[in-house]
Amino acid sequence: MTTLIRSIAVGAALFAAGAVMLERARAGSDEFFPPVTDPLTRQECGSCHMAFPPGLLPARSWQKMMGELDNHFGEDASVDAATAKQITTYLVAHAADSTGYGDMRRWLRGVPASAAPQRITELPKWVREHREVSPREWTRKEIASKANCVACHVDGERGYFEDD
């Protein structure tokens, strides 16, 4: 009986270790960005657009954005101070240049250290990855805007942004 429990425990541990390694390997690729797991961030940042993975911007960008929510790309997206603080902490901890989770630094290639870009769609890597999408394609009604990732990346909510 103890042997059985022990083998189950070893199996579970191996599985967990494998899952962590797989997650890290995927996080290193250009196509997987760990999705938002914090429920508050997911809810507040996912009402008007998808809750963009925090690894898509550096910490300094998230900090700037969270300080200007009353004018969020022209919209009033303000939240109360306690909510803003909790979301900022989460975004910064999981930002592209954080060491907390995976390594997204390659995603920031070409972004000056002094800049705090706000539009993900203006990052050099984003532009490069979407250079094959024709201007006509962007005007399709069901796309609506470049912020609507999931119009094309059907598994974007789960973090997958491979070519579709």
Binding site: S47, C48, H49, E75, E142, A144, S145, A147, N148, A151
Partner: peptide, 11 residues
């Protein structure tokens, strides 16, 4: 009112 709406960015 009984159908889904859509935000300016498409959600």
């Amino acid at each position: 009112t009984r159908a889904a709406g859509r935000t300016p960015v498409g959600k």
